[in-house]
Amino acid sequence: MTVSALCENFVYNYIYMNKETYAEQMGALPEYKSACAGSLAFIVLYNLTNINITEWIREIATIKVPGFYAKETADYVFRENPVLTAMGAAAGLWLGKWLHWFVMYNINIDMISFTTTIAPVSYVWSLILTFVFAMLVNGILYFKLEKINMAESLKSIE
């Protein structure tokens, strides 16, 4: 292989290559392991929205009794999600930057050095993915709203 560039590396020694070169040299496509953070965001959003639906089940059933359409019911339940997602994303951008700096600054390990630089595109991707996950969760839980049994929900004891 031909070395085309050098970079500063803070942990051990590595060779970086594009997926085509990797496949050519290793005979297989590379494995990507960056789904951990996205999965966490999805799970948190799903659980919070699911708890919200569970707590409001009587009110949702009350709205469905007069004959509200599925979209009207979903709009009622999910109307606060975009606002809360925006507030969480804004707070997360500021707190996340501070937390990243704090953790990286306090890690003192021999032979390892970490940078505290966050690329601007990372902020854009985090905002986009947060809203995509929020819309995905709303879409999945839309079907849970349809399965709410009005009679059972209204006669449940608080």
Rank of each mutant, 00 (worst) to 15 (best):
L29V: 13
N138R: 13
E158N: 08
P66E: 04
L99S: 07
K19M: 11
A37L: 13
I107L: 14
G38N: 12
M135V: 13
G67I: 12
S34Q: 14
I43E: 07
I140L: 15
N47A: 10
L141T: 02
C36R: 11
Y12V: 05
A91L: 14
I109K: 12
A74L: 07
A134E: 05
A86S: 04
A61D: 06
G88Y: 05
P120C: 07
K144Q: 08
T62C: 02
I109E: 05
Y46S: 02
W56I: 08
G38P: 06
E31F: 10
S39V: 12
L129E: 10
F10Y: 13
E152L: 04
Y46T: 01
G92H: 04
K64C: 01
L48H: 08
M150F: 05
Y14W: 05
M87V: 15
G139E: 09
M104F: 10
M26V: 05
L95G: 06
L129W: 04
I109P: 02
L154H: 10
E59L: 09
M104W: 02
L136A: 09
F102N: 01
Y22F: 15
M1K: 09
I53K: 02
I15H: 12
I118Y: 02
E146T: 02
M87A: 14
Y142T: 03
A35H: 10
K144F: 05
T116V: 14
P66G: 07
K97T: 15
V121S: 13
G67A: 06
A134P: 03
S39Y: 07
Y123G: 00
A5N: 15
N106C: 10
T130W: 03
